[in-house]
């Protein structure tokens, strides 16, 4: 009961005790609901695929193997898709965050005469969306279809990111910029030497947002580059595995097709279910490992942006 007492803390009467108990139970249920699907997938990804088909695996593998991962990591398509995913995430984040920060800096300057105009022009686009087809035609005109840059350019700047960074820069002491101006620093110097270094917490937050969006994106691959294997990404490959099993939904063909692979002499097989599980873990692990460390920052960033925006 020691743990329980610790969780409940100093209690003030029976009502309080009941409330805290119910609350803690609810939170524990929430934790289970949030974690179970991923743990289940993790267990299946480490379980022998022909055994997983029998069912009954929960959060621990029954017959342990790493073969599903070996299969995923030796598949040329998946490796290449992984490379594209990493590239679009790195390039997209670097360029996107830089661009957002620069716009945010200009509209954070109280003396900038186009401040209102620039802000309005960006904010309007949050609700004014031309739609899929006009954008598609534009990107085709610009020669972006079938190119890597369709992953980067159309989504370069996020309005919400600008708002978050702007709020942060506006919160910096104006005297810093003033004294730099007196020392003869221009706007570029003030941006690179003062605004950018001091905004690192918010830059980290926005980088996380942009990186996650880039890493998780599959729709632009599907629309623009689905016929070019070199430009496929991990999420898109996973999506294909998923939609193959969806298309077979109800026809009973889902688990039936297995494909054999021989590795190091012995023959083991993988099923779509196991490949899907291993790939799900591969695409999710990088982000899951990173976000808890940035939690302090993004909670703050989200709050600033939400309250002021």
């Amino acid at each position: 009961m020691g743990v329980f007492k610790k969780l409940v803390g100093r209690r003030r009467g029976v009502d309080d005790l009941i409330f805290d108990t119910v609350n803690i139970i609810l939170m524990l249920i929430l934790i289970v609901i949030m974690l179970y699907p991923m743990l289940n997938t993790l267990a299946i990804s480490f379980n022998v695929s022909t055994d997983s088909v029998r069912g009954g695996i929960h959060i621990w593998p029954r017959e342990f193997t790493t073969f599903n991962y070996e299969h995923v990591f030796t598949e040329a398509t998946i490796l290449r898709a992984g490379l594209t995913s990493v590239l679009r995430t790195v390039i997209g984040t670097a360029l996107g965050v830089f661009a957002s920060a620069m716009v945010a800096y200009t509209i954070s300057r109280p003396h900038f005469f186009m401040k209102k105009f620039v802000t309005l022009a960006f904010v309007l686009t949050m609700y004014m969306n031309a739609g899929l087809i006009p954008s598609y035609l534009l990107h085709r005109e610009l020669g972006l279809v079938g190119s890597f840059w369709v992953y980067i350019l159309p989504t370069l700047i996020g309005v919400f990111n600008i708002i978050i960074i702007r709020s942060f820069i506006e919160g910096l002491p104006e005297t810093l910029f003033e004294s730099a101006r007196i020392d003869g620093a221009g706007e570029f110097t003030q941006f690179f030497k003062i605004a950018l270094p001091l905004s690192l917490p918010v830059i980290a937050t926005v980088s996380l947002f942009v990186a996650v969006a880039q890493w998780n994106q599959w729709f632009d691959v599907f629309i623009y580059n689905s016929s070019i294997p070199e430009l496929s990404t991990l999420q898109y490959e996973l999506m294909k595995v998923l939609s193959n099993s969806n298309a077979a939904y109800g026809s009973g063909a889902g688990a039936a097709d297995q494909f054999a692979r021989s590795a190091s002499g012995q023959i083991e097989t993988v099923t779509p279910q196991s490949v899907r599980a291993a790939m799900t873990i591969v695409v999710s692990v990088p982000i899951i490992c990173v976000y808890p460390f940035l939690q302090k920052y993004f909670v703050k960033g989200l709050t600033i942006g939400g309250v002021k925006g």
Binding site: M34, L35, N216, Q235, L238, M239, V283, I287, Y291, Q295
Partner: peptide, 16 residues
């Protein structure tokens, strides 16, 4: 823990 699913893609979530 409650923030975790936000960082998963819809492809992953749909699979789950």
């Amino acid at each position: 823990i409650s923030y975790m699913p936000h960082f998963l893609s819809w492809v992953v979530v749909a699979g789950l």
